[in-house]
């Protein structure tokens, strides 16, 4: 018993020491990165949020690292962003230091060997946000039900996937013109059930919107009464006082947003430092507060709270190829919504 106590005490001490050492090592690594980053040029970041939103994120970063300059360029559309990266690398040999996009784009860039591999654990980045060594999950776009509270009384509001396919929504429901939600749901439901649910949705003659931000506005305006949209896209009209409400889905489909450091980055240290900071509790909060897109993987964010009780539906990054195939098939089915009209 005495031995056991001694062993336990030693083991505890060893754990504390190794944690302290790891902490010291992490602090050293970050400190070295910060020193190197401050000597480099400004970190160029391609990301899709508004400049005014990202200004706040960069300001929060500069509170901790005032000597590392970050410049954000808004590039809307993940595919176009990836296309631009390819062209810049091919044309002049370098592109942005940091690129934030979806799994399909990030993996496509990695297939071209454009992304830098990093040992993120040395920098204290949680394993759950680094499914791979070339990308870090910084946030997620989570699908929710959007409801116009003036048009749909509380007792009639849909609360589940089953509610959404009821006939009463015929001609009153909206969705994104891409079948992203149903594609991700196929990971949980299986392809057959997801396809059957998608066909039920199509039979309701939904209004399909090119972008989910305007869709949220159209729900607010009463053009459609309910829609399957993203949590963050509903925030602007809600903040402006629109009669719009979000209802969580269970399972909740989502698209994770990844950020990667490029191999051609001109300030690799700065880019790595910034990305490590972005997934700290301070960085994640700053990003979520600014853009309304938070990380479902990091505790303390609103997005984590939104989905922690629900099952999430998303193809893991390594199954991006399967996602692409299902998405292609489902997009085609969704485009037949016009023929049903």
């Amino acid at each position: 018993m005495q031995v056991s106590k001694t062993v336990t005490a030693w083991a505890g001490a060893a754990a504390v020491i190794s944690l302290a050492l790891a902490g010291t090592a992490k602090a050293d690594a970050l400190s070295e990165l910060a020193t190197a980053a401050a000597k480099g040029p400004e970190v160029l970041w391609y990301e899709s949020s508004k400049e005014s939103q990202i200004d706040k994120v960069i300001a929060a970063f500069n509170k901790k690292y005032p000597n590392v300059k970050v410049k954000h360029i808004r590039v809307v559309g993940g595919n176009k962003m990836a296309g631009r990266v390819v062209q810049e690398v091919q044309g002049r040999g370098y592109t942005a230091d940091l690129v934030s996009s979806g799994a399909a784009q990030t993996w496509a860039l990695n297939d071209r060997n454009y992304l830098l591999k990093t040992d993120w654990s040395k920098l204290g980045v949680p394993k759950r946000v680094t499914p791979t060594d070339f990308a870090v999950a910084i946030a997620a776009s989570v699908y929710v039900i959007l409801v116009n509270t003036k048009k749909v009384p509380a007792e009639e509001q849909p609360k589940s996937w089953d509610d959404l396919t009821k006939k009463k929504w015929m001609g009153r429901i909206g969705g994104w013109v891409r079948a992203g939600a149903h594609t991700q749901m196929s990971k949980v439901w299986g392809q057959d059930k997801a396809e059957a649910e998608l066909r039920k949705f199509v039979a309701l003659k939904p209004f399909l919107f090119k972008s989910t931000f305007p869709m949220a506005q159209q729900v607010a305006a009463g053009e459609v009464d309910v829609a399957i949209g993203f949590f963050h896209t509903a925030q602007p009209p809600i903040s402006a006082g629109a009669p719009l409400k979000r209802i969580a889905l269970d399972p909740a489909p989502m698209h994770t947003i990844y950020t990667a450091v490029t191999k051609s980055a001109r300030n690799k240290a700065g880019a790595t430092l910034f990305l490590s900071w972005l997934v700290t509790s301070t960085g994640a909060k700053a990003y979520e507060d600014a853009t309304n897109r938070g990380s479902h993987l990091l505790e303390g964010t609103r997005t984590h709270a939104l989905v922690k009780e629900a099952k999430t539906a998303e193809y893991p990054a390594e199954e991006t190829g399967t996602y692409r195939k299902v998405a292609k098939k489902f997009n085609k089915i969704l485009s037949s919504a016009g023929a049903a009209r």
Partner: peptide, 15 residues
Amino acid sequence: VVYLANDSPTGLPEY
């Protein structure tokens, strides 16, 4: 054209 440039599931524009 817009679909192929922006929303193709390949992750890159289908130029």
